[in-house]
Every structure is written in structure tokens, then in C-alpha cells.
Design a protein around this nucleic acid. Sequence first.
DNA 1: AATATCAATCGTAATATTGCGATATATATG
DNA 2: CATATATATCGCAATATTACGATTGATATT
Lengths: 109, 109
Amino acid sequence: MGLTKTEIFTEEQNRLAIMLKALAHPARIAILQQIINANACICGDLVDELGLAQATISQHLKELKTAGLIQGTIEGVSVCYCIEPRAWKLLSSQLDEFFSLYKEPANCC
Amino acid sequence: MGLTKTEIFTEEQNRLAIMLKALAHPARIAILQQIINANACICGDLVDELGLAQATISQHLKELKTAGLIQGTIEGVSVCYCIEPRAWKLLSSQLDEFFSLYKEPANCC
DNA sequence: AATATCAATCGTAATATTGCGATATATATG
DNA sequence: CATATATATCGCAATATTACGATTGATATT
């Protein structure tokens, strides 16, 4: 065990869970906020800004990139990271949809 | 290590990450969808509906309850679970705010 | 070519998560 | 009170996550 039973859930449920997992860490939230704020960031900026080791930041960036939420472009020695607009909008709207499923408390327990 | 460095992030970043973590599992997404769909659910219904053991569903319900996303009311032998409206709305608007930080691709990399 | 700079990857330790069987607890019902 | 029903909790095994030092790789700079 210790392994999520993906096969019993829908594609959508699994995809949403994966994206949310990518967001579900304060460092990654902070990284995204920094990237948005600065329009683009390189790894070193984030290392200075947050108080985490370079290896740790790099690993978080990789997770965000794997999820598709950010993209990285090589720019000389450094790599410029910014938001991936499509994935961002898609996730945003999927979450909107999910949260709007719930309408006001009817006659709950 | 293996421990998140909460102290270097803001209260908001940590709270949002905790709530997202509670959502970031297909079983918990499915549970919430079921609860919303049926207006309220008891643990047994969810065990039948999803294909997970009773102990597993109970544990997921506990996590959702700890996060404050659902509430449970004892109803005879069973416990009736439903959405906690305040937490739901709060998270929804916090996510709205977070996602709206990003405005269109300016002159990115 | 040698060196500096920046980021990715490897390896490792500590901790967390996932899932379930077994058991405990708590409330109905006969 | 004994039994059935429903849920929670315990304990465990398998796996995943988090963090970082050390190293590697790749591009500039001198």
C-alpha cells in the first residue's frame, strides 16, 4: 500500500488532484506569487527571496513545471521561469467549476 | 529533514497550502462531489459508492473535517457529513484571488 | 583553455501519506 | 442485556514528500 488507487477514479478527478498537489505546498505557492509579481523569475532570485536551498527550489520548480503550471526558457547561464497561461487558466476554470457545484446550504444535517 | 519549513512562509501561504493539500487527493475530491450531489452523505454510502475500504474512507473524511471543509453530525448510529459553507466559500474566494493575480502574458520569456 | 556562474541531478535522512485489516466504541433493536 | 449496525481508531507496510549537501553539466567571462 501507500499507493493511491488511481484506477477507481475518473480522469478528471485524478488530473485535478495532481494539479492541486502541485499547488499544495507553501514554497510552491510563494514561488508562483513571486513569478507572477516579477512577471518572470530565475531560480537564483527565488533562492534569495525565499529562505530555501538552491537544490530545494530547483526541485519545487521541477514539480511546478511537470504539472505544466510554469515554463522555463534557457537564457544564457540561467533559466527564466514564468506562468504557463493555458494550464493556469484551465486549472482556474476547473476549480471554479468544482467550487460552484456547491450551492448554499439547503436542508443539511 | 522531510519537514516543511512553515516558519519561513506567511500565514496565508501556509493556510492555503494546508487547504489545498486536503483537496489534493482523488478520493477526497470524489467524496466532496458525492456529498454535494447528495446534499449529505454517511460514511457507508461513500464506501459503497467509491471502491475503498471503510477505514480508508473514514480517514479521508477525518482529513476533510480537520481542514474544516466538511462537518459531521451524529444521527443515530451513523454520522451525516455535509459541506461546511463558511470554509468552502473562504477557500473558494482565496483561490479566486490567488488565480487572479496572474493577468495575461505580458512580455514573458 | 581556465575559471566563474547558475541550475539540475544524485544520494540520503527524516517525515508524511495511503490503504487496509483488526479492533474498539457507540447507538439502536430485539 | 445481547446483538446488529455504523463509524472511528490502531498498527502496520508500502510508497511519497521535503530538504539539503555534494556533484555534475552547461554557458559565459577572462
